[in-house]
Amino acid sequence: MSDNILEIKNLSKIYHNEKGEMLALKDISFSIKKKEFISIVGPSGCGKSTILTILANILKKSQGEIKFNIENPKIGYMLQEDSLFPWRTVLDNACLGLEIRKEKTEKNKNKVINLLKKYGLGEFINSYPDSLSGGLKQRVALIRTLAINPDILLLDEPFSALDYQTRLSLSDDLKRIIKNENKTAIMVTHDIGEAISMSDKIVIISNRPGIVKKIIKVELKNPGTPTENRKDSNFIKYYDMIWKELDNHV
């Protein structure tokens, strides 16, 4: 089990307000290996985002165990909204995490510049976000997440604000970048196709409270880029499998 970078055991989350309490997650358990790409799918409101916010240390868990098998794990969290600051240039936006951690050394800054150049943002380094398309903005947001050199990336529906075309090409980019940079990632998505074409493992969560319905290991005949994977002969098999799992619980 030591090759697991993160193990989650019996994670539960209760939301409280004055009217009462709501069990959002119950006994969630799964683990992720280094360099693995996991997707979480499930009906709206089943608690997918809650899992990520707990892992990102923004919310407290109610019960259970979250075990990182590395010291001081660094976590990169990326949301559907690019949340770029309009008053900062692309470069300064990408360096935000370094600045907050007081790690914005000349060396780290150059690393970020190289990342931006490497992934097609070279000419926009000193532009402001307003002048970028939605897809490019989301790419800056990804580099901002990568800049702090995270051990695990948490992606909450990173493409859902984009049009279909951009979505496909950005998922190729994202997968390539994550692979190149040797990152481990957990992604939440509504899109079954996106989950199959990008992931090694898919965790299906059912509604409410959110429990793990099933964990599927994705084995494609000829794994390639996400767009290519959508044409794989096993793709439709997994699609039906997940569709059925979700359908039972809507």
């Binding site: 949340s83 907050i100 951690r101």
Partner: peptide, 26 residues
Amino acid sequence: DPYKIILMKSLGATKMQIFSKLVFRG
């Protein structure tokens, strides 16, 4: 924007940093 605040938190920002780099600046 609450999402920008979540972003700052996920990057490990203190309340002071959230204020100076985001809330006040914005």
